[in-house]
Simulated assay, not measured.
Amino acid sequence: MYPSIIQVDVIIPTQTKYLDFIGSIGERIAKELDTYTGDKAALAYQLNLVLTEATANAIKHANDQNQQDIVRVSICLNENVLNIKVYDKGQGFDLNSVPEPDFDNPKEGGMGLFFIRSTMDSVTYTKSDTENVLEIIKNLN
């Protein structure tokens, strides 16, 4: 494993007013990647979207609108791998049971995990007695 180049840990209350802040961190990281040879603007957009959607899901679904709860977001860049973890203390869910969106009959909501899965390389979800973790990996080579 390579030494960490960038490590960002953010703890926010379960309030959606912090979503822009979380998304902007992803944008800023993408724009500062000196060794990334791909489209930095596209990566910045993807990271903003992924961080915003993952955090929004944790706030809206996992914590039942309890504003006393927190969501922790950890972003770690090791060489060419970006690892994002979103931690919450909600009831959790089964990632594999979330259906693909119905594009013929679209409805409001339900697109977040689809966007995350389609732009990132790996998405996993683990649930324990103390917390849940949505782990998202993007290979940057």
Score class of each variant (00 low, 15 high):
1 M>S: 15
1 M>G: 15
2 Y>S: 13
3 P>Q: 13
4 S>M: 11
4 S>D: 15
7 Q>I: 12
8 V>S: 03
8 V>P: 00
10 V>A: 02
10 V>Q: 04
12 I>G: 01
17 K>D: 08
18 Y>C: 07
19 L>P: 07
19 L>I: 09
23 G>T: 04
26 G>N: 03
26 G>K: 05
26 G>A: 06
27 E>A: 09
28 R>Y: 01
28 R>M: 07
29 I>G: 10
30 A>R: 09
33 L>E: 03
34 D>L: 14
36 Y>F: 10
36 Y>R: 06
37 T>F: 04
37 T>C: 02
39 D>H: 00
40 K>H: 00
42 A>V: 12
42 A>L: 13
42 A>C: 07
44 A>I: 09
45 Y>S: 11
46 Q>S: 10
46 Q>V: 11
48 N>G: 00
48 N>L: 01
50 V>C: 02
51 L>T: 06
51 L>Q: 06
52 T>G: 06
53 E>K: 04
54 A>D: 02
54 A>Q: 01
55 T>E: 01
57 N>Y: 02
58 A>N: 05
60 K>A: 09
61 H>V: 05
62 A>C: 05
62 A>E: 14
63 N>T: 14
64 D>Q: 12
64 D>G: 12
64 D>I: 08
66 N>R: 15
67 Q>D: 04
68 Q>H: 10
68 Q>N: 14
68 Q>T: 07
70 I>P: 00
70 I>W: 09
71 V>W: 11
72 R>Y: 01
73 V>W: 08
74 S>N: 13
75 I>L: 08
75 I>N: 00
75 I>P: 00
76 C>W: 07
76 C>S: 13
77 L>F: 04
77 L>N: 03
77 L>W: 05
78 N>L: 11
78 N>W: 03
81 V>P: 03
81 V>W: 01
82 L>K: 04
82 L>Q: 03
83 N>Y: 06
84 I>N: 10
85 K>R: 15
85 K>I: 10
86 V>T: 08
88 D>T: 06
89 K>N: 14
91 Q>W: 10
95 L>G: 06
95 L>T: 05
95 L>A: 03
96 N>A: 12
96 N>Y: 15
97 S>R: 15
98 V>G: 06
99 P>D: 02
99 P>I: 12
100 E>Y: 12
101 P>D: 07
102 D>T: 13
104 D>T: 14
106 P>C: 08
106 P>R: 04
106 P>M: 10
106 P>K: 06
107 K>Q: 15
107 K>F: 05
108 E>D: 11
108 E>G: 07
108 E>P: 14
108 E>V: 14
109 G>H: 04
113 L>Y: 14
113 L>K: 02
113 L>V: 00
114 F>A: 12
115 F>C: 04
118 S>P: 07
118 S>H: 04
118 S>T: 13
118 S>G: 10
120 M>V: 06
122 S>N: 14
123 V>E: 05
123 V>Q: 01
124 T>W: 07
124 T>C: 09
125 Y>H: 15
126 T>H: 09
129 D>L: 13
129 D>T: 12
130 T>S: 12
131 E>D: 05
131 E>K: 07
131 E>I: 01
132 N>D: 05
132 N>V: 03
133 V>K: 01
135 E>Y: 02
135 E>W: 00
136 I>Y: 03
136 I>N: 05
137 I>W: 02
137 I>T: 05
138 K>N: 05
138 K>F: 12
138 K>A: 11
138 K>W: 08
139 N>T: 13
140 L>T: 06
140 L>H: 08
141 N>H: 09
